[in-house]
Design a protein around this nucleic acid. Structure first.
Lengths: 153, 153
DNA sequence: TGCGTCTTTTACGTTTACGTCAATTCTATA
DNA sequence: TATAGAATTGACGTAAACGTAAAAGACGCA
């Protein structure tokens, strides 16, 4: 249960290869770190949202992957589909100003915000409707038990 | 496109059979009346939520079915699953006080209310998070267009 | 009698984000 | 070397509420 443990087993067999920052993490650690399951990470990769390096067949997640995962999770939190997230992330260009990416994100965000507000309105409706029904039901129950209850305090 | 039309074609071939109130409606009219699809009505029947009479193979919806459908739609609106709705409706007993039904409904309603409130909290979170991100993105876009804009008013 | 519309049944498809095996391999450690 | 603990791929399952297609029966009308 050690596996590179936490602080990087300094001279690892065959690392220090591609990355500069050197904090490659395997899927288990990655999953714990971000509170997702292994399946989720593989799923995201399958959908083209993550692209961890490989050491043989073992996935090694880099700093970049962590940043991307954070974005994915933020996106999910605010209600974007994975497809949306991918579409936005695919526009990322480390050499440019990313204006297009930002515009797309803003556009999608506006729509999503509208959806969220509509949802909230629906939920508020539902809450009100439900509360009303509950009052009615309580009434009915009270009436049904009243005949005996009026005395038995 | 006539079909008994709207106001009941008085002397219909073979109606006035089972119901007292006499307002049997076929699936098409029923669907329009309540804004659902034919498929939905058949689906509800398949799930045991509705039980229209039959004239041969033709479904005939009674007053009772309409009442039940209203309940189903209300249930759906406040977020109950069809299973929940069925469970509650199955307890209906026209001869009793329906105390058990009401208690179950109240119990489920309380839980559903809690879920709705949790959902609303999540949505509020999402809205806030998203609004924040949007501000940031707008900032970035503004900065990117500022260099030229400071002169080109 | 043929058309058009409505209806019926059956059954597979859709959507989204994973869960849950299963069989197998890899790795580290005692 | 044995064994436990990771990790791999692949494939099927899940949930909910229908959508949709297909093929055929039923009804009224001109």
């Amino acid at each position: 249960m050690k596996l590179i443990s936490a602080g990087e087993t300094a001279a690892n067999t065959n690392n220090m290869s591609v990355e500069t920052g050197e904090d490659l993490v395997r899927i288990g650690e990655m999953a714990k770190k971000y509170g997702v399951t292994l399946r989720t990470l593989r799923f995201y990769e399958d959908k083209g949202l993550l692209n961890p390096q490989r050491d043989g067949s073992t996935r090694l997640y880099t700093r970049r992957d962590k940043a991307r995962l954070k974005l994915i999770l933020l996106g999910r939190k605010v209600g974007f589909s994975l497809r949306d997230v991918k579409q936005m992330m695919d526009l990322y260009d480390p050499t440019g100003s990313n204006t297009k990416q930002l515009r797309l994100a803003l556009d999608k965000s506006e729509k999503q915000l509208a959806r969220l507000q509509k949802q909230r309105a629906l939920i508020d409706d539902a809450i009100n409707e439900l509360s009303g029904s509950m009052s009615a039901v309580r009434q009915m129950l009270a009436e049904r038990s009243a005949p005996q209850a009026s005395v038995a305090g």
